[in-house]
Measured scan of single mutants.
Amino acid sequence: MEVRTIKVFTTVDNINLHTQVVDMSMTYGQQFGPTYLDGADVTKIKPHNSHEGKTFYVLPNDDTLRVEAFEYYHTTDPSFLGRYMSALNHTKKWKYPQVNGLTSIKWADNNCYLATALLTLQQIELKFNPPALQDAYYRARAGEAANFCALILAYCNKTVGELGDVRETMSYLFQHANLDSCKRVLNVVCKTCGQQQTTLKGVEAVMYMGTLSYEQFKKGVQIPCTCGKQATKYLVQQESPFVMMSAPPAQYELKHGTFTCASEYTGNYQCGHYKHITSKETLYCIDGALLTKSSEYKGPITDVFYKENSYTTTIK
């Protein structure tokens, strides 16, 4: 009895394709271990004539594949690729409408935090270190965002349907971005203890939790000093293409032309909904596939993004 075979390709990165001759009487799992086709788990399936010449994702289970996976995804987590594939199996079914010149995501599976993050990423200057993220990001900007969303979920250790947080998501993504040249110098002034300067680099240099107003941050924000008295913390120097200011959701007025974009969060910790506000020729609110415009805006804002380049204080 002759062994019926077909020729397929296996890959971990969709760049390096490895030619395989597979036995049609055995499952993919018996031949390769966990195997995925377009995100779908085909591990328990036997090869079919229609699979001839198709590319299958496999887990990096030998040295060659491990090197290829690390170079593309910059992670050695053995569960990463499987999590990416199972997320992709959902995100490829989502709709990605162009809204006001940006790629958004039609609401499904509690994905409003991903839509808000995706919209924000198209408006701030950011370059990702893992080629996987950078490639998928370019495709997302062009309207094909399924891979990018699935990668975000995998890097953030999230599953489809789980509630997510924009600030946490951005923080994970910033860790995989090139923020080497970003720098922030802060000064804390206390009447009792004097003053202390701190220099922050990388992710810490672009994120701040405690106030939404970048102007206020430049002037000074009140913080408790270690001595128990009130101290003032203010920005001395900022070198970065953008800054992200966050605070627990509270009524906040966004003035046209003073910011790049913002995240609105309605609801409580267990259950809520994100919308995205962007400042173009007027203010726009993007909620999944829905767009509304207004000249002014007041609502429960939790993150505001500002364009920056270089700032030095005039406070002496």
Rank of each mutant, 00 (worst) to 15 (best):
E2V: 07
V3L: 13
T5E: 15
I6N: 04
K7G: 05
F9T: 09
F9M: 15
F9E: 14
T10Y: 11
T10I: 15
T10M: 08
V12P: 06
N14P: 04
I15N: 15
N16L: 13
L17Q: 09
T19Y: 10
T19C: 08
Q20P: 01
V21N: 10
M24T: 09
S25N: 10
T27V: 12
T27N: 15
G29L: 04
Q31T: 07
Q31A: 15
F32G: 03
G33L: 01
G33N: 00
T35R: 01
V42A: 08
T43K: 08
K46A: 08
H48I: 09
H51T: 00
E52A: 11
T55H: 06
Y57I: 11
V58W: 06
N61I: 06
N61F: 15
T64H: 08
A69G: 00
A69P: 05
Y73R: 00
H74I: 00
H74V: 03
H74S: 05
H74A: 05
H74L: 01
T75N: 11
D77I: 03
S79V: 13
S79N: 11
F80H: 05
Y84V: 02
Y84P: 02
M85R: 11
N89C: 12
T91N: 06
K93A: 11
K93N: 13
K93S: 11
K93L: 12
W94R: 00
Y96W: 01
V99A: 00
G101S: 03
G101M: 02
L102D: 07
T103P: 01
S104Y: 00
S104K: 02
S104F: 04
I105W: 00
A108I: 10
A108E: 14
N111G: 03
C112E: 15
C112T: 10
Y113M: 04
A117F: 09
A117N: 03
A117C: 15
A117H: 02
L119P: 00
L121T: 07
E125T: 10
L126Y: 01
K127S: 12
K127E: 12
P131S: 02
A132R: 06
L133R: 00
L133V: 05
Y137L: 05
A140T: 05
A140S: 08
G143K: 10
A145S: 02
A145C: 12
F148I: 02
C149T: 07
A150K: 00
I152K: 00
I152T: 11
C156T: 13
N157R: 13
K158I: 01
T159L: 13
V160M: 04
G161W: 01
G161C: 03
G161A: 02
L163R: 09
R167S: 12
R167K: 09
T169W: 03
M170G: 00
M170A: 05
S171K: 06
S171A: 13
Y172T: 15
Q175N: 09
C182R: 03
K183R: 12
K183S: 08
R184V: 10
V185Q: 08
V185M: 08
V185Y: 07
V185G: 04
L186W: 13
L186I: 14
L186H: 15
N187S: 14
V189I: 15
V189T: 09
C190V: 02
T192M: 11
C193P: 07
Q196W: 08
T198R: 14
L200P: 04
V203C: 10
E204A: 09
E204G: 08
A205I: 01
Y208V: 05
Y208R: 02
G210R: 06
T211I: 10
K218N: 02
K218H: 07
K219S: 11
K219T: 10
G220S: 05
V221H: 07
I223M: 14
I223A: 13
P224D: 11
T226S: 11
T226N: 11
C227Y: 04
G228P: 00
G228Y: 04
K229N: 15
Q230W: 10
T232N: 05
Q238P: 04
P241C: 11
F242T: 06
V243Y: 04
P248F: 12
P249Q: 06
A250I: 15
A250C: 13
Y252P: 09
E253L: 14
K255A: 07
G257K: 07
C261V: 01
Y265E: 06
G267Q: 10
N268P: 09
Y269G: 15
G272K: 07
G272M: 07
G272W: 08
H273F: 03
H273Y: 05
Y274G: 04
K275V: 07
I277F: 04
I277T: 06
I277N: 01
T278R: 07
S279Y: 09
L283C: 08
Y284M: 12
C285G: 04
D287R: 03
A289I: 03
A289S: 05
L290W: 10
L290E: 10
K293W: 09
S294F: 13
S295Q: 12
E296W: 13
G299E: 06
I301W: 03
I301N: 07
T302K: 04
F305C: 06
F305L: 08
K307Y: 10
E308Y: 07
N309I: 11
N309Q: 14
T312I: 15
T312G: 11
T313K: 14
T313A: 14
I315E: 13
K316Q: 14
K316E: 14
